[in-house]
């Protein structure tokens, strides 16, 4: 690896880090404005014009609060919990192809930090590690509500991971590759996977909501039953990290959904452009797709009420997994037929 590549990758990592955090911060603003709009209120409008500085005010507030660790809590695990959450939320962005190659200073720069040949599996690996942040934090707080929240979160995430994986396999079957880069390239122009696999997208979307602990699946932090769920005992920036990691993973998983089902950076009619113009166009298209998916996720939160826990398990095990398996079988048969294996 030469030095230029090292610099270029480090710059990309830093940029992605800042963008993820910035987007996450402004997602909170957007979510509050959207909630206000849906509930016919004004929403935050005091900090700056249209309340645009609200996230900064919130962040400052988080930092200035007292950082409290309960006396009987397991101190180290209590500190590590939010860190793991944030780490797993951020690291997935390293395998996402953010756009076509950008030409800067005479070098072709790939807008993907690591072109893994098993990108999708990496994403699932990180998702499965993400449970630890919540579990460890919830247990270490030494509070029964936190423990309930942690246990709900982990059982929910393990149950929905299955259906998520099975629905994602159909995309791998269609593409014939586990690399996210290949998946995006195979959807060139308007040839998006959503037109071939609408059912898989539907399942993937629902399971993503469950993995994100977003409404209607936000039982781990269900405030009417569990006070605050797994982060009941957290305060200051540790709580901030938990809340922030939720928004960051929302951003990243929207990006994953855009990559897998909505063609990633592909736009219809992209062949008319080339070079840097194409790169900028592709990044803009990708950002727009991510924005729309985030909008739908927030829209769902303020529309659909929370599930009951038995309903959640019923939906996961008895509805989503069988449907996903049937979908996978049919896809397999069609792929085998097209390849002439039958």
């Amino acid at each position: 690896m030469d030095t230029a590549m090292l610099i270029e990758k480090s710059a990309l990592v830093l940029l992605l880090f800042l963008i993820s955090l910035g987007v996450a911060a402004y997602q909170t603003y957007f979510e509050r404005k959207l909630a206000a709009w849906i509930q016919d209120r004004v929403g935050p409008d005091r900090a700056g014009p249209f309340g645009i500085l609200q996230p900064i005010a919130d962040g400052t507030k988080m930092f200035l609060k007292e950082d409290f660790i309960p006396a009987k809590a397991d101190k180290w695990l209590f500190i590590i919990g939010p860190g793991i959450s944030m780490f797993t939320a951020l690291i997935t962005s390293s395998v996402i192809p953010w756009g076509t190659n950008l030409n800067l200073f005479g070098r072709d720069i790939s807008l993907q930090v690591a072109d893994f040949n098993i990108g999708i599996l990496f994403v699932f690996g990180v998702v499965s590690i993400g449970v630890y942040g919540i579990m460890i934090g919830g247990w270490a707080s030494n509070n029964k509500y936190s423990l309930y929240g942690a246990i709900r979160a982990s059982s929910q995430m393990i149950s929905y991971e299955l259906a998520m994986g099975i629905s994602a396999i159909t995309i791998v079957m269609l593409t014939g590759s586990l690399s996210l880069n290949d998946i995006v390239k195979s959807q060139h122009g308007m040839n998006w996977n959503i037109f071939y696999q609408p059912l898989a997208f539907f399942i993937f979307f629902i399971t993503s909501l469950a993995e994100l602990n977003r409404a209607p699946f936000d039982l781990p932090e269900c405030e009417s039953e569990l006070i605050g769920g797994y982060h009941t005992e957290y305060s200051s920036m540790k709580l901030g990290l938990y809340l922030f990691s939720e928004y960051t993973s929302m951003f990243v998983s929207s990006a994953i959904m855009a990559v897998m089902f909505f063609g990633g950076y592909n736009v219809p009619g992209m062949d008319a452009f080339s070079g840097n113009i194409l790169a900028i166009l592709s990044i803009a298209a990708f950002a727009l797709k991510i924005f729309l998916i985030i909008f739908v996720i927030m829209w769902i939160r303020w529309t659909i009420p929370r599930f009951r826990f038995d309903q959640l398990m019923h939906l996961g095990w008895k509805v989503l997994i069988p449907v996903a398996i049937v979908n996978m079988l049919i896809t397999g048969l069609v792929v085998a037929w097209n390849q002439g294996w039958m």
């Binding site: 098993i118 599996l121 990496f122 699932f124 690996g125 998702v127 499965s128 590690i129 449970v131 630890y132 579990m135 247990w139 423990l147 942690a150 246990i151 982990s154 059982s155 393990i158 991971e161």
Partner: peptide, 20 residues
């Protein structure tokens, strides 16, 4: 990655679950 998903991500979560 499979080692990470299966062992670290699934089996150990169940271990932790029971111990908690």
């Amino acid at each position: 990655i499979v080692n990470m998903i299966v062992y670290a991500g699934a089996i150990m979560v169940l271990f932790l679950f029971v111990l908690m």
